[in-house]
């Protein structure tokens, strides 16, 4: 069994499921979780290929992606909480206008 095949199968499945979560789930929080899943899937592929091609910069990119994804999650959660506090609920379908 080839590790690269296993990594590709795993990351491809995780990325596709993450994309499906963002597409089909209507809650904002679930969509945010789907984004996190897609980012994690890409990170695994990057780490594996960094080892294959002996590329240290790919590992550096993964470290930066993990940090940026954490910041993105925090800002996303803050926006979701603010939308909830404004009383407009938690579904993406109610957010149809870019109002201040």
């Amino acid at each position: 069994m080839n590790l690269t095949a296993v990594v590709w199968a795993t990351t491809g499945s995780l990325f596709a499921i993450g994309l499906a979560v963002v597409t089909f789930r209507r809650q904002l929080l679930a969509m945010l979780l789907g984004l996190e899943l897609m980012l994690a899937a890409v990170n695994v592929a990057l780490v594996h290929h960094a080892g294959l091609f002996d590329d240290a910069e790919a590992l550096a990119v993964v470290a930066l992606v993990i940090a940026v994804a954490a910041a993105e999650a925090v800002v996303g959660l803050a926006l979701i909480l603010r939308v909830r506090r404004s009383g407009r609920g938690a579904d993406a379908s109610v957010l149809t206008e870019l109002r201040g």
Binding site: L3, V7, T10, E36, A40, N43, V44, V47, H48, A50, G51, L59, V62, A63, I66, A67, A69, A70
Partner: peptide, 18 residues
């Protein structure tokens, strides 16, 4: 998977941050 791919530091970062 990070650990298995030979990158224990990123695996630790993943657990800590994510």
């Amino acid at each position: 998977l990070f650990l298995l791919c030979g990158s224990p530091l990123l695996g630790l970062l993943q657990v800590m941050i994510y």
